[in-house]
Every structure is written in C-alpha cells, then in structure tokens.
Nucleic acid binder design. Sequence first.
DNA 1: TGCCAGGCCGGGT
DNA 2: ACCCGGCATGGC
Length: 215
Amino acid sequence: MLIYQRLYDSFGPRGWWPGDTPFEVIVGAILTQNTSWENVEKAITRLKRDSLLHPERLYCIEEPVLAETIRPSGYYNIKARRLKKFMDFLFGEYEGNLSLMFSEDMETLRDKMLGINGIGPETADSILLYAGCKPVFVVDAYTRRVFSRHNLFISANIGYHEIQDLFMKNLPKDVELYNEYHALIVHLGKNFCKKRPNCTICPISSPEFFLESPL
DNA sequence: TGCCAGGCCGGGT
DNA sequence: ACCCGGCATGGC
C-alpha cells in the first residue's frame, strides 16, 4: 500500500464517483467511455433538465430523443443505443430495480453485464464498484499508462485481467480502498504524467519506486 | 489546427 | 487471441 499511501497523502480523498445516485453512476459510466468527464457532465445536466435520470424514464424514452439529449458527450448515437440496451437488461432481468440487480452474485452479474452490447470490462467494473459498492478493482487507460511508464509491475501490452489480478491479489478486498485507489490513479494520470513528462513532482516518481514497490 | 479524453464493437488476420 | 477502424463532441 506504499504507492496508495503516497497518492492519498498527496491528493487526499477524491470523493468518487461524481454522481448523486447509483443510477446516475451507471449512466455516467457508459457516457464516459473514451470521453472527457466535462463532456459527460454536460450530457448529465441535460438529462437532469429533462428529468430523464430515472430508470422508468430512460427505459421509455425514444432512442433518437435520448441521442440528441446526450449529444455533448460525443458518440451520442452509439451511447444512446448502449444506454437503451442496459435499460432493456435492467427491466428484462430485474424489473427495473437496481437493488434487485445488485443483490445478484457479483461474478454472475459481471458476466451478465459483459453480455450487454456496449458494456465492456471497465464499464462493468465501474458499475459494480461505484454504483453497487462491490469489491472489484477498476482498471483503465490511466492505470496501464501510469504504472507501465514508471516501470511498476506492468508492461504496456498487459491485458485488463492481468492488471486487475495484480491489484486484487496484492491488496485487501476493501471497497473503500478500491474506490479511492482508482480515483487517485485517474487524478495522477490527468494532472501529472501527461502534462509533466519528467514527473518531477509526481508523488510516485522517486528512484526507489523503479524497483519492486508495494501497490 | 490537430490531438485527445475515465472504451467498446465488429470484422479481419 | 490480438489488431484496427469507427464512433463525435468540446477544450486546449
């Protein structure tokens, strides 16, 4: 937990996920696919404006109308389809009830969600962790970039599951820890590793970290 | 102006 | 089992 501690000491708690309800978290997880969070916020604001951020409303809304509403998030046609596919799943399997959905066995739910067109590993895990409070470590582009560039444990071409296993086998199975750790990695990736290539004030870039360091 | 952002899918090797 | 083009807006 050395790297985690250093990130936490530098940045403090990130307060993730930035969303008021589990349903909003799920919608945000789909909308933020390969998209900046600022653009997603604009789309969420428009969904709230039209009172669409409720399962019953999103389930019934016409896909072209939804697409136009979420336009600022980019990829709006494909994301409208993906949101509708998720809603079909939620109502088809769980009567539109998120609590019922999250009462499902975690691995079973994960596999089922991966079967929905438009839900991949990161989106599924974000939903499980940040909407369902399930102990799953979320891996994203920042996780791979930050850790491989610092030569910490992983090479650039490692797969999603290998990275996830690495974290989950070397950390306590703790929802709060997984929540905070992923958010801290994203914060680091956004604010340091790209804008400052030599990372002189990056909290994990001192020499001792270029060998084995506890996650 | 061009590049990129908290991915994923479908078709091709 | 990988690799690649497509999807689209807004900010720098």
